[in-house]
């Protein structure tokens, strides 16, 4: 049977990929996709621990909350991205420095 460490390896790799995406992307939508990967890694951890450690459904409920909050986050974030695009004309996150000085 697959051990807990294999799932931890998968979720850690997903977290690493998400962090690299968030750090290196210029496109704002690309950054949001990195956030999705990070949230999925957290959800996978919750379900795995609920199955291997506790045996009840609490971890699955937290994963459902994570999915709902991720949907809310992506809806608001994409609305903000569209508003920025309508005002500025691009969504390159490193060039959006209007509030800097």
């Amino acid at each position: 049977m697959i051990g807990i460490k294999a799932f931890l390896l998968v979720s850690t790799l997903l977290l690493t990929a998400g962090l690299i995406t968030v750090m290196t992307r210029k496109n704002a939508i690309g950054i949001l996709m990195g956030v999705e990967l990070i949230l999925n890694s957290a959800g996978l951890n919750f379900i795995m621990f609920s199955r291997y450690v506790h045996g009840n459904v609490s971890g699955m409920i937290f994963t459902i909350f994570i999915i709902a909050l991720a949907a809310a986050e992506v809806a608001i974030a994409l609305a903000i991205v569209l508003a920025i695009y309508n005002m500025v004309g691009h969504i390159q996150a490193d060039k959006l420095t209007n509030l800097k000085e």
């Binding site: 996978l44 379900i47 199955r51 994963t63 459902i64 999915i67």
Partner: peptide, 19 residues
């Protein structure tokens, strides 16, 4: 699919539906 593999059938379906 990994959620389903871990026995979390409902969460797997929710993941597919929402994500």
């Amino acid at each position: 699919v990994l959620y389903g593999y871990l026995g979390a059938d409902f969460v797997a379906v929710v993941q597919i539906l929402i994500y």
